[in-house]
Write a protein that binds this DNA or RNA. Structure first.
Length: 117
DNA sequence: CGATTGACGTACG
DNA sequence: TCGTACGCCAATC
């Protein structure tokens, strides 16, 4: 019984992995990750995974993960409200009114980028 | 153990 | 087009 943990963190690990795969200057949405994981039924679970992404190594760029509208829905969870926006700008992502500018252009879909088609 | 909440998304009016 | 309602699954109270 080499059960490391009682719960299956597969979902969390996968979410973290995908989040780390997000290229600099790019952003993605929870829904995209969900669908990539095949769990488009639990959108909120991705948010919980991100909540668990704090303190893990390597750090998970959760700031690059926004909601479907490109809105920084989780900016309040970075300690400071400006932390998420600041990091995004640092990555070269423009943020206006807590929203990613040209979100459609900067959108990074794992299903398309990671899938060999 | 039951009810509420939560970093979302889709459906309906 | 905008606002409200519901579903989803897990964690917390």
């Amino acid at each position: 019984m080499a059960e490391k943990k009682k719960y299956d963190f597969t979902f969390f690990e996968d979410v973290h992995a995908v989040a780390r795969l997000i290229p600099k200057g790019r952003v993605t949405s929870y829904g995209a990750i969900e669908k990539y994981l095949g769990a488009a039924k639990s959108a909120r679970m991705v948010g919980w995974a991100m909540n668990a992404a704090h303190g893990v190594t390597p750090p998970v760029p959760a700031q690059r993960v926004v909601n479907r509208n490109g809105l920084l829905s989780g900016k309040h969870h970075f300690g400071e409200v400006d932390a998420m926006e600041k990091m995004l700008k640092k990555d070269g992502v423009e943020v206006k009114n807590d929203q990613v500018v040209r979100f459609k252009e900067l959108f990074w879909d794992p299903m398309i980028e990671l899938e060999v088609k």
